[in-house]
Design a protein around this nucleic acid. Structure first.
Lengths: 237, 237
DNA sequence: GCAAAAGTGTTTCAGGTACACCCATGA
DNA sequence: TCATGGGTGTACCTGAAACACTTTTGC
């Protein structure tokens, strides 16, 4: 069953070669009922000035999460942002330059609190996921994988709030979930479910910008959410 | 918002350092109503001869999935096995030796078709996940992450069949799902659901080993499953 | 004949989905 | 006054969970 061309554990780990490892960040925001992603012009060859995700190489002296935080900070100035691993993209020839293994992470940010002016000088911009251009290498695949992951995670953990400011209206929240799932949700059913979870607090103030009547602001109550989890109940949206 | 200690894209990707990348395989099997994992004595320092997952370093000239397939083949002689990525473990100091980024994958194998005699010479053995010893570094974490992932995946895709032979009885299949979810399942509800999916075929023969009455063998019908998926229906167990 | 595992249906309940009208307000 | 988006309740239906007895056969 084991062919002669393979050798057993004496040879395991014997030929250690190191490889270039990159992190690519899918930085997601929410604006005007659409999910957006921050993309930039690739600043060097190969494929210089083609559209690309935010990325950087992992340095020898930093942890993986450190590298991700660094790249995120460099492009957006943000720290302490919600991030999750999407996956590893490691086939030969996925990068036209050298062999690079890339580890994709997504970040959920509040676009209003995100200053991309520095990144903009280098061609960075927000684009709607509905009008995403062709990106370099397998970056488009990373984005679609991210959206799938986000759909799964948002269904089971209220991470969507990371994309909004401290206060938001229920119509906005609903639009966010519609953007994540890419399908319309019934207004009454949505409010019923989200309010039944008892993790939101209704405020006295209203947002009068998007309608004449105005919609009440709510805020996410993290304490209530933690209690809910500890009592063994499951979130499901 | 961007501090001076950070530089913008001119410096992105400028200091390319390569790092050691390993793959670790969580090779899972199913035996006597228990999930099992293949572990081995680590064959070199540091932590020589402590229990460890099957692993190996990624070579400069092979893709990530190639490396995983190679390690799996070296230890089990198996090819074409169902595998999925679990995640990347990349913090500094996770490995006592050098800085190593490790990418964990799990494999679902049929223990009866898996010849570990070669690996056994080097101390490899199957252990039940219920009696898993302390493994080196963060390998125990990889295992618990794998089980979580397996639970999620098995609920939505019938991957469990990869752990069984071509033929199996419904009591066996139920025991498998009970092992994955680590909780008992009602016999009648289980049979109802699994048979309603119409992805199994009942055979004429019976397994007389595990009971006097004998339980009918079934086999997984991949064609029916593909049809089910294409018709937009969702698996859910 | 009895122990041991296989096999079989029905009822109940909760949660999901579908659905339509009134309200408040600025223009 | 009317156009726009915000806010509300009910009926139905599907799928999950609970539950107990009969069958087969080797010993």
């Amino acid at each position: 069953m084991i062919s002669d061309s393979y050798t057993m554990p004496e040879h395991f780990y014997s030929d250690k070669e190191s490889v270039l490892v990159a992190v690519d960040c899918i930085i997601m925001g929410f604006h005007e009922s659409d999910l957006h992603i921050l993309i930039a012009k690739r600043p060097f060859d190969p494929l210089r000035s083609n559209w690309s995700l935010m990325g950087g190489f992992v340095k020898g002296n930093e942890g993986l999460s450190g590298a991700v935080q660094r790249v995120l900070y460099e492009y957006t100035g943000l720290t302490g942002i919600y991030m999750e691993q999407v996956g590893v993209y490691g086939e030969m020839n996925r990068d036209l330059g050298e062999r690079v293994i890339s580890i994709a992470h997504y970040a959920l940010v509040d676009m209003d609190k995100t200053d991309i002016s520095n990144a903009e000088k280098h061609g960075a911009k927000w684009v709607s996921i509905r009008t995403l251009p062709k990106l370099v290498f397998d970056h488009n695949l990373m984005v679609t994988d991210t959206i799938k992951r986000l759909q799964q995670r948002a269904a089971v953990k209220p991470i969507g709030f990371n994309l909004l400011g401290d206060q938001f209206t229920l119509p906005t929240l609903q639009a966010l979930y519609e953007a994540i799932y890419q399908e319309p949700i019934d207004k009454r059913n949505f409010r019923k479910k989200i309010l039944a979870m008892d993790i939101l607090e209704k405020l006295e103030t209203k947002d009068k910008d998007s309608s004449k009547k105005g919609a009440f602001y709510y805020q996410f109550n993290k304490e209530k959410y933690e209690l809910l989890i500890q009592s063994g109940l499951h979130f499901s949206l």
